[in-house]
Design a protein around this nucleic acid. Structure first.
Length: 760
DNA sequence: GAGCACTGC
């Protein structure tokens, strides 16, 4: 046995001679070669456990460190480690596996390593990929696994996220990545040939990218019999995925199940429904503070305003309690948590709870009041009590009026369960649900609707077409979106000339899909060289792709507004964005400058990053970077280029009360108060329709009706317009133009018009 | 005269 020559070893046969170690005469295979006897995808748990215990790293052939051995002892205690044999057997026998691993099972770190031991991707020049819905998760898990495998992060184990590719081609064989990143890769390599196994982690979160990947991989598995797929999810969704990935309609994909390792959480319900959930939540937090033993509280609310408000009230009431009875009640700190908080303030959630005022006094307590960010993205240790009013803000899409909006809605059972689980991470906990058990059982949906059912899909549809999906309606979705949503997306893409009338991708559409942007933005950016303003459109596009750059603290609104006024360009908010970015660069990205002007340094840095990435894409596809030196003309051209992308988001002024009607849909809207226009132009183009206290349009610029007709003639074909003032206004412009053309007796090409204008 | 649930490319 020990005398087998390496050439007989199917594992070593893949390797060039230089990597096979010493020649046949001296090699004692079993000792020198840690993966000796490993048959790809026929590997057994026993073999892997032995290999893990040796002194040589089986993948790098380097000696293993003391740290490796220490971590290995910890890994052995993970629930998933105990099920290694079962895993390898199932992996050997199946192309697709659904896996359920509760919190603390170790699935995210261990399963990809197990797969690497079985697939031996490094011997075939392949990779094992594991997708994550979030960038931080991809980064931090990759780091952990690199440590566990005793390799340098970015070499054998790496990660790939937007703006950061921490992999080494030819060396990396285990890669964590965001789901969106893998989807991007699929656009240029629909067979995903680089991968031997793809693991979709956190599939129950049902992000748009994961949903599309599931559809693609199901189809791809039929073409590529050598590709293995593992879908990892929470319990409740497993059966759905098993059925979906079953090879035939009655054969479900096998389930690999691993228990978690969390502490029990006792759940309490209210006897009666609570009419005011914020008030009830505050009351419950204070009740816990008075009556329950030491341990921090996590309260879920829906948004920034609600959270800041609740924090203030909890603080006031807690101070009252302390004043009434200083011996019985400990000090309390209340920490808000939501994504738009600066990172420094987000860090406060990890501060320890305040200590008791006296050695014998009641212990202090920390209350974190958070949005859903604490449900999935951030985990906080030390939480023992969860207060769950049962609501969150959720995105909803109305395809009829093409509007996405945020609505406070009841959460799902799955979400409630996830929230409760946050109380049991360090020790047994309690969860107080501010609704009745009856409502939980009968009113809450099992699952939150997946994103694909709640979103505008124009981006996704362009990606799918680019991926070669011909029939979007019959694509095998886990949950199919409403046909009307798909129709709306196809319609938009057709108007943008990304798709022809038969739904085929145009050359323009192919380039548009390469930009990590909404189709409207991609379109205006790609056509902008024709308007000699592509440098500027690049900036505007980047600024429109990052969160709001304006900061407006409650107690400094006037100062913030004044600072904003200094940067405002009256012709339109898009030009203001350009101006802000240019000033930011002129002031050398100075932090003090941004602070003095009430601008978010974080958002501006992001814009810088996005701009650089978009610029690389432009260069790759020969989209020229040009500018006009005449600023007045430049500003006109910029607004004309805007029309080429956003002609479907135009509104026409109605009357003198500041009301606008959106074109074709005839929605009554108003300019958002943040809008910087100094008058009310007859025609405006807008980036966003927001439904808050009333319907508003946000990020708005002044445009001319002539431009709409000239650059978006297809859409502004009057025969497709409902009767009304908008149509009549357009008709007047057309009539006037026709009259002029008769006078001038020449065509209306852009160049001709410009020459004419220049002569004036 | 107002907001920004959360991600991702």
């Amino acid at each position: 046995m020990s005398g087998s020559a390496p050439r007989d070893n199917p594992y070593l046969a893949h390797l060039p001679a230089s990597q096979r170690g010493a020649g046949p005469s001296t090699l004692n295979g079993a000792n020198r070669e840690p993966l000796y006897g490993f048959l790809p995808r026929k590997v057994k748990g026993e073999q892997v456990r032995t290999a893990m215990e040796q002194d040589i790293n089986p993948f790098t052939k380097q000696p293993l460190s003391a740290q490796y051995k220490r971590i290995l002892e910890v890994r052995k205690k993970l629930p998933v480690y105990a099920k290694m044999d079962e895993f390898f057997q199932m992996f050997s026998e199946n192309q697709i596996i659904v896996m359920v691993g509760e919190t603390g099972s170790g699935k995210t770190t261990q399963i990809p390593q197990f797969v690497a031991y079985s697939d031996l991707p490094h011997t075939k020049g392949k990779l094992v990929a594991c997708t994550q819905p979030r960038r931080v998760a991809a980064m931090s898990v990759a780091k952990r696994v690199a440590d566990e495998m005793d390799v340098q992060l970015g070499r054998h184990v790496g990660y790939s996220i937007r703006f950061e590719d921490m992999t080494e081609p030819g060396t990396t064989f285990l890669k964590y990545m965001t789901d969106g990143m893998l989807l991007r890769e699929a656009m240029n390599d629909p067979d995903l040939q680089r991968y031997s196994t793809i693991i979709l982690d956190e599939a129950h979160e049902r992000t748009l990218a994961t949903d599309i990947l599931m559809g693609l991989l199901k189809t791809l598995a039929k073409r590529r019999k050598d590709l293995k797929i593992i879908v990892m999810s929470a319990t409740l969704d497993a059966l759905k995925f098993q059925k979906y990935f079953g090879l035939t309609s009655d054969a479900a994909a096998p389930l690999f199940k691993v228990p978690g390792r969390t502490h029990p959480v006792e759940v309490f319900y209210t006897q009666e429904p609570e009419p005011d959930y914020v008030e009830a939540a505050i009351r419950t937090v204070l009740m816990i503070h008075r009556a329950e033993e030491q341990g921090d509280i996590l309260l879920f609310l829906t948004g920034e305003e609600e959270i800041e408000d609740a924090c203030r009230k909890i603080k006031l009431e807690a101070d009252d309690l302390v004043n009434q009875d200083p011996d019985a009640v400990g000090p309390l700190v209340c920490v808000p948590l939501y994504s738009s908080l600066p990172p420094q303030q987000q860090q406060r959630i990890f501060d320890p709870a305040p200590s008791a005022r006296t050695p014998e006094g009641a212990p202090g307590r920390k209350v974190i009041v958070s949005t859903n960010i604490a449900e999935t993205s951030l985990t906080i240790d030390g939480i023992v009590y969860v207060v769950d009013p049962g609501f969150s803000k959720q995105k909803v899409y109305n395809p009829r009026i093409r509007v996405e909006s945020l609505l406070v809605s009841p959460i799902s059972k799955a979400s409630a369960q996830q929230r409760a689980g946050r109380a049991g991470r360090t020790r047994p906990g309690k969860c107080f649900r501010l609704y009745t058990e009856k409502d939980f059982m009968s009113e809450l949906e099992e699952q939150t609707h997946p994103e694909i059912l709640r979103s505008n899909l124009s981006n996704t549809v362009l990606e799918l077409v680019k991926l070669g999906i011909k029939d979007l309606v019959r694509f095998d979705y886990v949950d199919a979106p409403a046909p009307e949503t798909l129709m709306r997306a196809l319609e938009l893409l057709n108007y943008l000339a990304a798709l022809d009338d038969d739904g085929n991708l145009t050359a323009l559409g192919g380039i548009m899909a390469e930009f990590p942007l909404d189709p409207q933005l991609a379109k205006m950016l790609i056509v902008s060289p024709e308007f000699k303003c592509s440098n500027e459109m690049l900036t505007i596009t980047a600024m429109m792709s990052v969160p709001n750059v304006w900061i407006r603290p409650n107690n400094q609104r006037r100062e913030a507004d004044a600072a904003k006024a200094l940067l405002t360009v009256p012709d339109g908010d898009h030009l203001t964005l350009l101006n802000v970015y240019n000033q930011y660069v002129q002031n050398r990205h100075d932090k003090n400058w941004t602070w003095q002007h009430y601008l978010s340094q974080r958002a501006l840095m992001q814009a810088d990053n996005v701009r650089a990435q978009l610029q690389r894409t432009m260069e790759k596809f020969d989209v020229d970077l040009v500018s006009l030196s005449d600023e007045r003309k430049l500003y006109v051209n910029i607004r004309q280029a805007l029309v080429c992308g956003f002609f479907m988001q135009v509104a026409h002024k109605e009357g003198e009360k500041g009301n606008y009607l959106t074109v074709k849909d005839n929605q009554v809207v108003a300019l958002h108060p943040s809008c910087g226009l100094d008058n009310q132009p007859e025609w405006v183009i807008f980036n966003e329709f927001v439904l808050t206290t009333r319907p508003y349009i946000r990020t708005v610029s002044d445009v001319k009706a002539e431009w709409l007709i000239e650059y978006a003639g297809n859409y502004f074909d009057l025969s497709t317009f409902p009767d009304g003032e908008t149509k009549r206004a357009l008709q007047r412009v057309i009539n006037k133009k026709a009259g002029k053309r008769l006078d001038a007796g020449n065509g209306d090409t852009r160049e001709a018009k410009k020459r004419k204008k220049d002569r004036k």
